[in-house]
Amino acid sequence: MRASQGMPKRSPLGAWLDRKQDLFISSILLVVALSAISGLVVITAFIFKEGLPIMLQVGVGKFVSSSDWYPAEGHFGIFPMIMGSLAVTAGALVIGGVLGLGCAVVLTQFCPRWAVSILKPSIELLAGIPSVVYGFIGVVILVPMIRVHLGGPGLSVLASSIVLGIMMLPTVTSISVDALQAVPKAYRDGSIALGATHWQTTRMVILKASRSGLVAAMILGMGRAVGETMAVIMVAGNTLDVPDSILAPVRTLTSNIALEMGYAAGDHRKALFATGVVLFVIIMILNTIALTVSRRRSRRKSGA
């Protein structure tokens, strides 16, 4: 008795189903696989559906350029929040970019094995710490420090930038590490063989070769900073003025939504969705730039 003949005979329909099995399964899987993209579509549709009408009613130009945010009187202008988001994101980029890139360079270039096994999990863990904990540490440690040593209320652009910078560090580091590791080892060996020091090699060869990947890392890190909500609410002060110094308090787009959503109704609620639309557009622009930059890199790599 051989195994293949021990199989029960299939009916013609069963045999046909067997032959078409791959196709059936594949179509079912495809339907599931489309859920991510359909989620994206539905999210976009609903955010715009809720937010766009009030934006058009106020006038898109006025909505983003007016500084009057008096929901009770029907005045909706989010210019201070846009500036606030830009200010804290720029600050975060300076801090998080330097820290994140520094960690990535150390991890890929100057790090013995044992140190990698400490540094890498630490940075991953840093990404896992809840944002409310960051915000809390910012409030109880950082804010008093700024208030005492630098003046101002403490709740400020600076405090938000530092907190956000540390929060975006893991994002910047992990994407930069990928980019730096993608540089062929031969480049490095070639440069070292020509007598360059390790740092000269890193600066002149490796950082240059992985430039587009590093740019993508920075942009995605910025996206993380623009989108962060809870930590910023806790340390930013949330006043409605355009900040005039790094020690001034600010309100960002995200905190505007989170602070007022709890009690908003009617046009006010719609205006918060419109704030979400602006945030969404900013994030999509950043994402698209990052994706295009990194895709160009991978295309060039595969072409070589």
């Binding site: 195994a3 293949s4 199989m7 299939r10 045999a15 067997d18 032959r19």
Partner: peptide, 12 residues
Amino acid sequence: ASNVDVARIRRR
């Protein structure tokens, strides 16, 4: 042939 059970061929 299109009506062949490929898994069965591979067992044989």
